[in-house]
Design a protein around this nucleic acid. Structure first.
Length: 242
DNA sequence: TATAATGTTTGAAC
DNA sequence: AGTTCAAACATTAT
């Protein structure tokens, strides 16, 4: 469910509630639910893996973490974390993190660091990478301050596409190559979005969960890498270690 | 059926 | 006081 492109799909699914008033709030979330009641939704946005329901002086942030889910105009057989009812339908969120942030959304988020956002800024991403020469690229790609929205699947697929070993040190990668990674992280994220919408994401994996390299037919290495210790799939032949 | 997985925050331990 | 790391949360496909 929860890498950036999936949250874009969620955001799009909720646009019908924009400018509508909340008629009912339910769920086991500990946030001050009454704060939302009778309020008008001004906007519904996403930033990386965050879904943001925006009101004039506060913002409700949803993070689906690993297992979160949602339904629109239908319900699951368990208590939702939060349920919002409008005149034209309702949305339920399950097993996710919900936080109420004070202030209007644009004062809280920098959308230039969201790979899915129209204001994504490659140059800022490059500048941030240059400040972390000791980090491994597998960790840097998962850093939400640099690549908001990139998750473990996007990380692996991006690195395979650009031919870079996940355990390469950022400082050892030439700026030109870093730019390629930055461009491809966004490119692949949009491919992910398109394929996810068509329910064909998995069949387009080139490396994630694969056994053999599609380019050279050698065995794909699977290992937990970086300080984040997340699963990496890579081809020792086709992905250069810097 | 047991396991592992698209993620992040928290707080204990050092 | 700063860093590190395990625990917690929670669902579903294999």
């Amino acid at each position: 469910m929860p890498e950036g492109p999936s949250i874009v799909i969620l955001k799009e699914a909720l646009q019908l509630f924009k400018e509508h008033k909340i008629l009912k709030v339910e769920g086991n979330s500990k946030i001050d639910q009454m704060r939302l009641l009778h309020q008008q939704v001004l906007d519904i946005k996403s930033w990386g893996k965050h879904l943001l329901i925006c009101f004039d002086d506060f913002t409700v942030k949803f993070h689906l973490l690993m297992f979160g889910s949602y339904t629109v105009n239908s319900k699951k057989d368990r208590v939702p974390r939060l349920s919002l009812t409008f005149a034209n339908g309702y949305v339920n969120f399950y097993s996710c993190s919900v936080t109420l942030l004070e202030g209007y959304v644009d004062t809280l988020y920098d959308f230039t660091s969201d790979v899915m956002n129209e204001n994504w800024d490659e140059k800022k991403a490059l500048a941030k990478l240059k400040k972390m020469p000791e980090r491994l690229i597998c960790d840097a790609l998962l850093d939400q301050d640099v690549f908001a929205g990139v998750g473990n699947i996007i990380k692996n697929e991006t690195l395979y596409r650009v031919g870079i070993h996940p355990q390469s040190k950022v400082g050892n990668i030439a700026a030109k190559k870093l730019k390629e990674i930055i461009v491809e992280a966004r490119n692949y994220s949009f491919d992910f979005l398109k394929w996810r919408k068509e329910f064909v994401l998995k069949k387009h994996y080139l490396i994630y969960n694969k056994k053999l390299c599609l380019k050279c037919n050698s065995k794909i290495t699977r290992a937990n890498t970086g300080t984040k210790n997340r699963r990496s799939f890579f081809c020792e032949q086709c992905q250069k270690l810097y």
